[in-house]
Amino acid sequence: MAKTLVWVEHDNTQVKDATLAAVTAASQLGEVHLLVAGSGCAAVAESAAKIAGVGKVHLADNATLKDALPENVAPLIVEFMGHHDAFVAPATSNGKNIAPRVAALLDVMQLSDVLSVEGPKTFTRPTYAGNAIATVESSDAKLVITVRGTAFAKAKTSGGSGTVEAVSGGADAGLSSFVGAEIAKNERPELTSAKIIVSGGRALKDADTFQQVIFPLADKLGAGVGASRAAVDAGYVPNDYQVGQTGKIVAPEVYIAVGISGAIQHLAGMKDSKTIIAINKDEDAPIFQVADIGLVADLFNAVPELTGKL
C-alpha cells in the first residue's frame, strides 16, 4: 500500500481545516502520515494525531520552520519522500508555495488543485478557471499533489490514534527570512469553511459603503464576507476576501453575490456553492445564469431592506 505524507497546515497552535480535506484525499491513496513542521508546535502534532485515519505524525519543531519558508521546509520534505510514495498538501497559499518546490527537487511533475482521486496515479483537476476538468495520469515514480479543500470531505478531528515522532531537520537554508505579516483579524467565519457567504462587488462604491451595506447582512446571517477582484483592487476590503480563480475557492451552503457581474474568474471560485443567490440591478448580468435565486434590484435599497427583514 502506498505511503503518503500530508503537509499539515497550521499556525503553530492549531491544525487548519484545509489539512482535513488533504487527509481525506491522501487516505484514498494509501496510508496517511503527517508532517507537522513549525516552531513550538507540539500541541499541533498532538491534535493532528487524533485526526481519524492518521498513522505516524512526524513533528519537526525548529525555529527555522516557524514561518513555513519553502527554502527551509522543502528539503525536509524531500528527505521524508525517501520513504513515502506521495506528498499531499492542501491547496492553500502555503501548500501552493511549498509543493512545487518539493516536486522539482524530486524531479516530479506536480498535480495542482486535485478534485478527485480516480486511481493510484489518476486524478481530476480543474483547468481554464474551472471550465475544463482534466483527468490526468502521472507517470512519475512518486506523486506530489495539492488538494482543493472544497472537493473532499473533511476528515474527522477525533477518533484517530496516530503516534507523534519527533524528527530533526529543517536547517536554515540561509536564503530567506521572514520579515512580518499583516494577518487581518476577522471575527466572522473563515471563507473556506463558512456555511454562508455574502460577497460584494465593484458596485459597493468604497470601503465605507461596503462595510455599511454588506457587513450588517453578513452579521445577521452569521456569514463570512467575500468580494470580487474589482472590490479588492479598489480597496474596499483586503486581498484575503477575494473569491475566484486566483483568490479563494469556496463552496458554502449559500453564497449571496451582491453587485457582482459574474465574470468567469469569479465564478471559478464559487460555482460549487450549494445555493447561489444574486442581487444585481442588471437583469442580464451573467451571475444570473448560475444563480438559483435572483433578485433584480438596486442593492442600495434591497440589501438594507433584506437585512431589516431577517
Binding site: S93, N94, G180, I183, T192, D240
Partner: peptide
C-alpha cells in the same frame, strides 16, 4: 506576498 490570511513579507537573497 498575498497569503490566505492577508499579507506576509519575506526578505530574499
Amino acid at each position: 506576498r498575498e497569503v490566505d490570511g492577508g499579507l506576509e513579507t519575506v526578505k530574499l537573497a
